[in-house]
Design a protein around this nucleic acid. Structure first.
Length: 526
RNA sequence: GGCCAGUUCGUCUAACGGUUAGGACUCAAGAUUUUCAUUCUUGCAAUAGGGGUUCGAUUCCCCUACUGGCUACCA
């Protein structure tokens, strides 16, 4: 049997092609971690590929956990990656507040949409799909505790709500009175004995028994704001979202969301869902978390994040190129189906497909991350690298001749993973060695070597101009003509100039540091 | 505990019922190189286990195990 791929652009068999509109909807409760960036990236790629819209919406309905600066961090992170929303964020990073041609569904911050959700919650209550509940946090906690002690699970749902403190069995006047006097929440009324069947673009068909579902709170009493579930569904509907691409942690609440769309009678325009697997810890168990970075010494955040608890590393500050980071991230949970691994953001835009997203969680691998950066470093223009290098040298307080940077970069580029490696890789270009590798010394600095070095020094003295081409062959010929071992002399020379068994060809190094300095370094060893 | 999802080399992954199970990273060996690195070549290394279905299962179905997520008036 041939499996037929379903078209994810046209949910029903209708010919109408809905405009692709996707959103990345982070909660500003802290810095965005790389898993979040990946989710944003996949949304962005999908939107771009289908010439659709990529919307950034801030889901700040949790007033308790709001973290100042998180929103700016999210926007800056995406910008660093080259991911630009075309709706929801103004050019200067400000959120659009009023609807406008480019931002027809403003505002895009849920706290600013607060007034809009209430009517929807009330509509559900009015039509019997939701109800008021007065149970205190303590009483619910007690119920959970006792259920747990019996090895059972407490579900505030179809089979238990009749025994709880809510408006379902109350007289209208009592409800009104208690609404007036007490704290209340609105809960969704999950239908009883119902099988909820739905599709996920990545996982296929999923079925859940409604009786195992919770009557989730849609409206909170503590801050008078909707919960994620309500705000999310309402906003996705109002913003005409066509595809919801989000993390797997949302899969368990998808049946609830499906039921909400049905309760609102929005099932015909309901978005299609794709749940991405999570990024896992490199070593042990669980999903990648903030702490792992500090513990294992790699960044989990795109940008450095400073908080009272400390500083968390960022890929940007660690010296990763944004395109390398994006490339690596794209390939954690997706592949183009070919053996191509180096893919630019622009290419990803064409190659990406939801069908090729892998179902299982991906573990981050530091070596591979290094490799990606190395590959990208090699493709960079030497002038750009020299510029970044100059900045690092200045920061490190190393004085240098700017005209030598380009040739140095050329020589050490392929030995580096990061631009910051240039510093260690190039020290001998700037300062004469202060210590000499002992093994090399023992092996190559034999008794007769000083005399030979004097001869080499004199030979070099007469080379003009002092370029790599002018040095290389004549020097080799000179050594061979003297019937000395090529390796021995060259290694000894390297010892004088570099101090260690590392670096590019000697002729190249000497030409960069210049004749005067070359001779001086040989002199020091005699 | 309950619900949902997942499981191919150490890691990221390919193989949409027929391949000597492919590639990349890592690691090892060799070649090149005046050193180191690069580069090139080669190698090590996997279908979680058990049942079906089938002429034939990595692939489809069931069970078990394991992993992950969710189980808040957090998202």
């Amino acid at each position: 049997m041939i499996k037929k791929k379903s078209c994810y652009l046209c949910p029903k068999d209708k010919n109408i092609m809905k405009r692709v509109r996707v959103r990345f909807a982070p909660s500003p409760t802290g810095p965005l971690h790389m898993g979040g960036v990946r989710t944003a990236l996949y949304n962005y790629l999908f939107a771009k590929q289908h010439h659709g819209d990529f919307i950034l919406r801030i889901e700040d309905t949790d007033s308790q956990r709001y973290v100042a600066g998180a929103e700016e961090y999210i926007i800056e992170s995406l910008r660093w990656c080259g991911i630009f929303p075309n709706e929801g964020v103004l050019e200067n990073g400000e959120m659009a507040v009023e609807p406008s041609p480019n931002h027809p569904h403003a505002p895009y911050r849920q706290s600013q949409r607060k007034s809009l959700y209430r009517a929807y919650a009330q509509q559900l209550v009015a039509q019997g799909d939701a109800y008021y509940a007065f149970d205190s946090a303590e009483s619910l906690e007690a119920l959970r505790q006792s259920a747990e002690s019996k090895g059972e699970a407490f579900v505030y749902g179809p089979t238990s709500r009749a025994t709880l403190d809510n408006s379902l069995a109350m007289e209208p006047h009592e409800v009104a009175k208690r609404l007036e006097e007490e704290r209340w929440v609105i809960r969704f009324k999950i239908p009883q004995d119902h099988e909820v069947v739905f599709q996920d673009l990545i996982r296929g068909e999923i079925k859940v028994q409604s009786n195992t579902l919770d009557d989730k709170v849609l409206w909170k009493s503590i801050d008078g704001l909707p919960t994620y579930h309500l705000a999310n569904v309402v906003d996705d509907h109002l913003m005409e979202i066509s595809h919801v691409i989000r993390g797997e942690e949302w899969l368990p609440s998808l049946p609830l969301h499906i039921l909400l769309y049905r309760a609102f009678q929005w099932q015909d325009t309901q978005p299609l869902f794709a749940h991405l697997s999570l990024l896992l810890k490199p070593d042990g168990k669980g999903k990648l978390s903030k702490r792992d970075g500090d513990r294992l010494g790699f960044p989990v955040f795109p940008l450095e994040w400073k908080s009272p608890e400390g500083v968390s590393k960022g890929y940007r500050e660690e010296g990763y190129f944004p395109d390398a980071f994006v490339n690596m991230l794209a390939l954690m949970g997706w592949n183009p189906g070919t053996e191509q691994e180096l893919i630019s953001l622009d290419e990803l835009t064409h190659l990406f497909s939801l069908e090729r997203v892998v179902k299982s969680g991906a573990r981050f691998n530091l070596e591979k991350a290094h490799w990606f950066n190395q590959q990208y470093l090699r493709t960079k223009e030497n002038t750009q690298l020299a510029q970044e290098f100059a900045q690092l040298l200045t920061e490190a307080g190393i004085t240098f001749d700017p005209s030598k940077l380009l040739p140095i970069v050329e020589l050490i580029k392929e030995r580096a993973l990061f631009v910051k490696d240039f510093i260690d890789l190039s020290d001998y270009f700037f300062t004469a060695p202060t210590q000499y590798d002992e093994k090399l010394l023992a092996k190559h600095w034999k008794e007769d070597m000083p005399q030979k070095m004097v001869a080499v020094k004199n030979f070099l003295f007469n080379i003009e101009p002092f370029t790599a081409e002018m040095i290389e062959h004549p020097l080799a010929q000179f050594i061979q003509a003297s019937e000395w071992g090529m390796g021995g002399v060259m290694n000894a020379l390297r010892l004088c100039i570099v101090g260690a068994a590392k670096g590019p060809g000697m002729a190249a190094i000497m030409s960069v540091i210049g004749k005067e300095e070359t001779l001086r370094r040989i002199e020091r060893m005699l």
